[in-house]
């Protein structure tokens, strides 16, 4: 194991890691917004929009991110729309993440018993008040496990960004292997980088999940 090599190239990995995290963060936030919107549309079964979001969800869940990125990065320019690698990465991530988040939130909304809504209405609360004080708090806590899984999933998906020329962790690793043949060192640093990013997140979410568990909803 060439320790000097590792020391020399650690900064490169850190920079790539930061890039990965930055794009992941933007992508996750975007996915949450898209997801919330879609889940509410599907929960309240708003006509027309419901079909459109349904189609969107099926398309994005049944196709790989790589193809979505290739289409955005290599395909769109042929139709006159040129996007930077970073923009493609973010758009692709939100396109994919939005549908996953939507399903997570929708299962949360549907897990809240309709009798809870009726109990709220019977107290004389307006529909808006019932959604705000009774429905959403419960829906959110039910969604947490799926939400956590999605966050981790999206961060893992960022590993394909190197395919659209983004200098992320995979790009750096592949470069170093190709240029210096220091495969073991490059791979080791790669694995450690992802462990550093994902292990803490995974642990924090397990902790939150355990805290938020109440036995039984509605009764």
């Amino acid at each position: 194991m060439d320790i000097e090599f590792i020391q020399k190239y650690t900064p490169l990995y850190i920079e790539a890691g930061e890039l990965t995290l930055r794009i992941a963060l933007i992508g996750i936030v975007g996915s949450i917004i898209v997801g919330l919107l879609c889940s509410l549309i599907r929960y309240y079964q708003i006509p027309i929009l419901r079909r459109i979001t349904g189609l969107y969800i099926e398309l994005s869940r049944n196709t790989p991110l790589l193809i979505q990125l290739f289409f955005l990065y290599f395909g769109l320019p042929k139709a006159g729309i040129v996007l930077s690698s970073e923009t493609c990465a973010i758009v692709g991530l939100i396109f994919l993440g939005g549908s996953y988040m939507s399903e997570a939130f929708r299962s949360g909304l549907e897990a809240v018993n309709s009798s809870q809504i009726e109990a709220g209405l019977s107290l004389g609360l307006t529909r808006y008040q019932v959604v705000r004080y009774v429905l959403l708090p419960q829906a959110i806590s039910v969604s947490v496990p799926a939400f956590a899984a999605n966050v981790i999933f999206l961060i893992k998906e960022t590993s394909v960004f190197s395919a659209v020329a983004l200098a992320d962790l995979m790009y750096v690793a592949k470069d170093l292997i190709g240029l210096y043949y220091q495969t073991n060192e490059a791979l080791l640093m790669l694995v450690i980088a992802y462990l550093i990013i994902l292990l803490p997140i995974s642990i924090v979410f397990s902790f939150i999940e355990r805290k938020l568990r109440y036995a039984g909803f509605g009764n």
Binding site: L123, Q138, G218
Partner: peptide, 17 residues
């Protein structure tokens, strides 16, 4: 109107959170 009518359900439905 519902503020003037109090209702108690079989499933009590207290808000768990």
């Amino acid at each position: 109107v519902r503020q003037k009518i109090g209702m108690v359900f079989q499933s009590y439905d207290l808000f768990p959170h």
